[in-house]
Structure formats: structure tokens, C-alpha cells
């Protein structure tokens, strides 16, 4: 079951455009290493779940993974072979809107090599370019 909100005020949302850079959630705050997004885009609940599992298997019984984004935005789609019109389609999946600078997930309690491996597995599951960042010391 992919991630999605439990309760929403409106079932469907407009698509909008992703503009600018992230101004919040740009620091490694919980773990020691993080994965910072470099593109603008959407990360679906399914992709996040796949990324989480990939990191869990890479970390095994060590360390902890923190996922810093949540798919709040409903994306609707029309069924295949349907004529245009008759209103907006039904919500198909949910996405997290990400901007350059967003720290998508963090890893803590493991050495750098292991964190690097886990986050590398994570980035293979994502539709955006990312890079590894460390907790800032200044």
C-alpha cells in the first residue's frame, strides 16, 4: 500500500508548476547523512516506498532511516480508452512535491560507507537527481 494522506480537505488538486528552490527542509536534521534533491519534480508514494525498502535492506539491522517528505498531492488520471470530457479523472496516486535543496531522506547511526551504500540504493528508485550531504558542522 503506497503512502497517502489519511484525511484530505479536497479529493482532487490542480497540478500546478514546481518553481524555485526549497527554503525549508534543506538541512540534515535527524541523522548524519542525507539525500538532497537537485531537480524539481514529483516523487510518488510508490517510489518513496520502494526507496524506503531498498534502504532498509541495505541497512539490515543497523542504523535508522528518516523519510523527510510525504506525498500530500493527489494526482488524477482518466481511464484508458476514454473519450475526453465528462469531468476530471479520479485520484490515481499521491506525490510529494520536491524542489532543489529538499532533503528527501536521512540515515543515522551507521558509518559513512554504509550510509553511502544505502542512499545510493535509494537514489536508484527516484525520478529526480540527488546527491549525498552530511550534517553541517558550522
Amino acid at each position: 500500500m503506497p503512502l497517502m494522506p489519511k484525511r484530505v480537505k479536497y479529493r482532487k488538486t490542480q497540478r500546478g508548476r514546481v518553481r524555485g528552490n526549497a527554503t525549508r527542509g534543506t538541512e540534515v536534521s535527524f541523522g548524519s547523512f542525507g539525500l538532497q534533491v537537485l531537480d524539481r519534480g514529483w516523487v510518488s508514494g510508490q517510489q518513496l516506498e520502494a526507496a524506503r525498502l531498498a534502504a532498509s535492506y541495505a541497512l539490515g539491522t543497523e542504523g535508522r532511516l528518516y523519510v523527510r517528505v510525504f506525498p500530500h498531492k493527489a494526482i488524477s488520471a482518466k481511464p484508458a480508452e476514454t473519450r475526453m470530457g465528462t469531468g476530471k479523472g479520479e485520484p490515481e496516486y499521491y506525490v510529494a512535491v520536491v524542489k532543489p535543496g529538499t532533503v528527501l531522506c536521512e540515515v543515522g547511526g551507521v558509518p559513512e560507507e554504509m550510509a553511502r551504500l544505502a542512499l545510493q540504493r535509494v537514489c536508484h528508485k527516484l525520478p529526480v537527481r540527488t546527491r549525498l550531504v552530511k550534517r553541517r558542522t558550522w
Binding site: 500500500m1 484530505v8 525498502l53
Partner: peptide, 18 residues
Amino acid sequence: APEPGAAPAVEGPAEPEV
């Protein structure tokens, strides 16, 4: 973490409550 191929967790509703 759950083992690969293990039984999925309890399914919630397919759509959020409005």
C-alpha cells in the same frame, strides 16, 4: 523491516477520507 515477499500489512482504505 518486513522480509521480501512477506504478507503485506493490513490494507487501509484505498482513498483518504474527505
